[in-house]
Amino acid sequence: MSMPSFALVRPRAVDEALEHLARHGAEAMLVAGGTDVVPNLRAGLFSPRVVVDLKGLGDLSGITFDRERGLEIGALATLTAVAESQLVRQHYPVLAQAAGTVASPVLRNMGTLGGNLCLETRCRWYNQSYFWRQSCGFCLKKDGTVCHVAPGGKRCWAVWSGDTAGALLALDAEIEIAGPAGRRRLSLTDFYKNDGVDRIHLGRGEILTRILVPATMAGYRGTYHKLRIRNSIDYPLAGVALVVKVEDGVCRDARLGLVAVNPAPVLVREVESLLVGQRFTPELTEAVVQAVVRTGKPLTTSMSTPEYRREMLRVFSRRALRELWRENGSH
């Protein structure tokens, strides 16, 4: 099945890419690995006149680590590169783990970390062919007026379905965005809007260029639990990323990110206050679980039911805490 026609530009530098964006405005669309954008173009979800291919921006694929400055990853680093990077695995294992669960090996060879952070939100009423969407009268997110997930509402609940954002939120990451006015830095928590349609704070003329993880988070224990039906290929149906710093069985720091249950990846902020200074107890675990399910609000956006996804948030949170703290924390 062929795609709608568009022009393709292949800038060699960020400034050149920004020029294209400035020139074409709303008619331009960025593509990096293409694993998200191209199938969406084919399904008629977007019809840009100009596609700006970022693959030529070679200086944006590096991965560096510095004890002072922390981890810096170019937005074009592939998910395979992130998952296999010794630096990432050693200092920020949760990120390597999350990146290593994205889709399938062959898709990780193409998909980029920046792309994964800018993923289009997903919904079973949206990620369908043009014909299919026409058959259901389209939806609020694209070409229609009704949300089939929450009929009567005016809000789109398409779900954030990237894996790495949860880990990076937990790691307190920042991102660098290049735009007409230069480069700015933003905490990843401020990047997401929790809106299925307008998902991220990335202006029309902007490009996400770098992902930065603070040095202070290096060495944190971390784990990512992902719900999916197939252990490869699939997007997450729910995901819990947890990082903790434990000393002598006492939690010194803890952060927990959720993906695939809300229109944005979210940090469960209560977790930090619940756990810091505490020793592991089952009661504390249940308090975290409660906080998680208060934050994660799965709806009927995917093939798995909201009830089951919510239940898995509970199981995954419990397991993550046990894994990182109870079993390993005491020695």
């Binding site: 079973r124 369908q128 062919s129 299919w132 197939r230 252990n231 490869s232 997007y235």
Partner: peptide, 13 residues
């Protein structure tokens, strides 16, 4: 689920 993504034919894993 009229797609290879959502009709879950098993992978190796």
């Amino acid at each position: 689920n009229p797609s290879m993504l959502e009709y879950k034919s098993a992978s190796t894993l």
